[in-house]
Computed example of a mutant assay.
Amino acid sequence: MGDAEIIPIGTRGRPGRGTGKQPSSAARDLAGASKGAAKGAKAQPVGARPSRPRPTPRKAVRAAPEPTVAETPAEGLTEGSAGEGVLRAPIRTAARGPLAGIPAADWLAAFRHAAVEVFGEHWEPQLARFLAFLRRRLTGDYAVDEYGFDQEITEQFFMAALRPIAERWFRIEVRGVENIPTEGGALVVSNHSGTVPMDGLMTMVSVHDHTGRFLRPLGADLLFRLPVFSALARKGGATLACSEDAERMLSGGELVGVWPEGFKGIGKPYSDRYKLQRFGRGGFVSAALRTGVPIVPLSVVGAEEIYPLVGNVPALARLLGVPYIPITPLFPLLGPLGLVPLPSKWLLEFGEPIRTDEYDRGAADDPMLVFNVTDQVRETIQQTLYSLLMKRESVFR
């Protein structure tokens, strides 16, 4: 017994630790000095069970009245807390919604202000026109001609989407627009370039903005085999590049556009830029001779530089059934970013019309005459290209 180790009661052999059931004396001392101790609370002996308040008899329970503004404690303060604050009414659940407390007039004023900021002062007529347009499209109350041309959607959607590109990106300058007839059929013949046929779209926008007429392009059969682009091309006024459709449109007084170089023009390498390729067999001249409409030569400078073609992948092109797979300094090296065209400065010049109504009716069947007129149109465009290139100060300005 003399050698036995004395262990303090309630520490389980470790000085300063409790038993796990009752707090140690040090913990009881700290608890007595804590801030959360209630004022005036009686100290209970260690190990005693905490006393519970006696339940109030059922008859003595009364509904407490709602606190008034003066009786409601301030936000962040509780009864018995130190400090004073400004008292206010409690926030009810119904008052916490996002629309609660904002009058309808304020919402309407905010909507009007936002509309003015986005659409300008005359936003109401624009909204009315848009709603009317939407109603016509949903109900089918719009006209489409026999070729699928939708004038309303072309003017209000296609032209509106292409116009900023023509005016701000390529900064197109148009010359000789007075050579385009204001009415009646006419055939616009242009050079073709740019790896992607962007020049056709920009020509359509420029003609419409300067003359008010719609240029009806003749497209290759590949365009009308594509699932999405085929429908868009039809609605935009394009039709298949065949003599029958071209003659019908010219006889109907339409302004028709043709690019005789075809894929040979847009797919030529950058080293051959602004050198016209062969104009085919002169089918466009035959259509003009049969209908007696004038031929307006068009020269486009600037489209050659938007996608400089430096290479091709013919094996992959044959596999996909397309004329070529272009390789440019930016594509496919930069991925989708390489599809953005370079902002070159464009010049469009319409030459003097070449009259065809002076020839006999059977002139379209004379191959030599057709060849001579085709060569005349080609040489006119080529010489105009050289003249514009000499006047151009820079590719991008």
Rank of each mutant, 00 (worst) to 15 (best):
D199P: 07
R175A: 13
T211S: 08
V188T: 14
T195Y: 04
E183V: 12
S193P: 03
H208I: 07
G184H: 13
G185D: 11
N179C: 01
G185I: 13
V196G: 00
P181S: 04
T203C: 02
L187F: 15
T211M: 09
I172V: 15
H210S: 14
I180L: 10
D199N: 10
V188A: 11
L187R: 14
V189W: 06
N179R: 05
V177Y: 05
L187I: 15
S206V: 12
G184I: 14
A186C: 13
G185C: 12
D209G: 08
V196I: 12
M198E: 00
E183A: 15
R175F: 10
R175D: 10
T182W: 06
R175Y: 04
G194N: 02
D209H: 10
A186W: 12
V207Q: 05
I180T: 02
T211G: 05
V205S: 05
S206H: 04
T211K: 04
S190E: 02
I172L: 13
L201Q: 07
D209L: 10
M204K: 03
T195P: 08
V207T: 06
D199R: 02
L187H: 14
G200C: 00
G185K: 08
V207S: 00
G194A: 01
I180N: 01
S193W: 08
I172W: 03
L187P: 15
H208F: 14
P197T: 00
S206M: 11
S206G: 10
S190I: 04
R171T: 13
G212P: 12
I180Y: 01
V205Y: 07
G176E: 00
D199I: 05
T182M: 10
S190K: 01
V207N: 02
N191E: 09
D209I: 09
L201F: 11
N179D: 02
P197D: 01
T182L: 10
V207A: 00
R175V: 04
N179A: 11
G194P: 03
V189K: 04
M202W: 02
L187M: 15
R175M: 13
A186E: 10
L201S: 04
G194D: 03
P181I: 06
V189H: 07
L187S: 14
N191H: 12
G184R: 13
V205M: 03
A186P: 13
V207I: 15
D209N: 11
T195S: 10
N179Q: 09
L187K: 14
D199Q: 07
T195R: 10
I172N: 02
R171W: 04
V174M: 07
V207C: 04
N179G: 02
G194K: 01
E173K: 15
S190D: 00
V177M: 09
V196C: 02
G184F: 14
E178V: 01
T211H: 03
V189Q: 06
